[in-house]
Design a protein around this nucleic acid. Structure first.
Lengths: 216, 216
DNA sequence: TACGTTCAGTGATGTCGATCACACAAGGGC
DNA sequence: GCCCTTGTGTGATCGACATCACTGAACGTA
């Protein structure tokens, strides 16, 4: 068997496919860990519910991304829940097989290490963005991150408008603000002409302008 | 040679010791990565400077903790700077030797993976705390985290007051608030009798009370 | 087509933190 | 002892977001 070059490939190769409808749960916060997942198509919400009842979106996993690996590695309960955002297909690999594969192929462990460094760096960047109290800065930074992700995912046409399919309320949960404040921040960007808003989607027209608008 | 059970042991075994005075830099943001470090004694500030000029404290590394491993793993530039907080001694291991050790001993890679999961989980918890806009919540949560760390570091006497040696301005940089707001939050806790403040130190008298005060 | 649900946009008001501005206490060096 | 630096504690003002309260638009479905 050839050695996969990414964890996602490994999980898709050896795991079992699961088809999901929007909103379907994969696991809940507090669950005992028993598997690791990779997104095949669609998107998966990684979310924690705070004491206040508010939801904090930790991430939206896209096709080719892995999730649930932390609990599989250390055996601790899930710190977040996972739910299908759209109709989605994911591959599920039991934690035992995942760990066996890691021990059998040392190169895989290094691959996973590098993937975790990406997550850690992203996490630190997010903390930096979160450090500003202005909603425009936080919303704008997240939009820039999402633009980057959308571009990497194939539609690599620089200078073309980037469509981000997301609800404003989810964006708000992600940056830790209210829906209203987020709508107003987007309104600012709209007035400046760098984004366009629609039902369930945000279109970034001018990435550079958005970057300078956020650099304040 | 026996296989160390933690990355810190490995780095101390094979690295070279460096003695630092308070404030001495180990590396700067943007530096090319060339080594990984472990704290032997004292503390090390991991910090990024934001566009606004404000500093964001990403962490205070204590004896037995590793830092600088991300850049050593992926070869990307330092995302943060590292400076001695107190008088400190650290061990420095060149990145090449670090990577060689990982490839030679697959068990080490798994060890490191587990250590990174700890960082990622902590990072997510911090994002959750940062989600509140109230300084009391953010300051209180960090204090609880620090209490936990101090307790793990040997002085494990539950119900005994926990002394945290830190300046209020550093606490402020850590939670992304101003020094003044942090001082007022601590004042609240002081009025409630769960903490005591002093020059360069904060004493947590009643951890449970602090926990409930923060749960709002 | 008509209705209901889900989203987006926006005003009014209260609250909390940032900012500016001091007063005061604790140590270190002479 | 006396500075002088470094930290801590607080008041006043201002601005930005949370909260509450609606309006209206988009989409699904009966």
């Amino acid at each position: 068997m050839s050695v996969p070059t990414t964890m996602a490939e490994l999980i898709v190769d050896r795991g079992r496919l699961i088809e999901l409808r929007a909103g379907d749960p994969l696991f809940f916060e507090g669950d005992r860990s028993d598997a690791v997942f990779a997104v095949v198509s669609g998107r998966v919400r990684i979310v924690v519910t705070l004491l206040s009842g508010a939801e904090l979106l930790l991430g939206l996993k896209l096709p080719g991304e892995v999730f649930g690996e932390l609990s599989a590695l250390d055996g601790r309960p899930r710190a977040a829940g996972a739910y299908a955002y759209d109709e989605a297909v994911v591959s599920r690999l039991p934690a035992g097989e995942f760990l066996d594969a890691l021990e059998d192929a040392p190169a895989l462990a290094l691959t996973l290490l590098r993937e975790l460094t990406v997550l850690l760096r992203r996490s630190n960047v997010r903390l930096q963005a979160r450090n500003s109290n202005r909603t425009t800065v936080r919303a704008g930074n997240l939009l820039l991150e999402l633009v980057d992700i959308v571009r990497r995912h194939g539609h690599i046409e620089t200078d073309a408008p980037v469509v981000i399919p997301i609800r404003q309320s989810d964006l708000a949960d992600w940056i830790g603000a209210t829906r209203e404040a987020t709508a107003r921040a987007l309104g600012e960007f709209r007035k400046q002409g760098c984004v366009q808003t629609g039902r369930g989607k945000i279109t970034v027209l001018d990435v550079d302008a958005l970057e300078t608008a956020v650099m304040i």
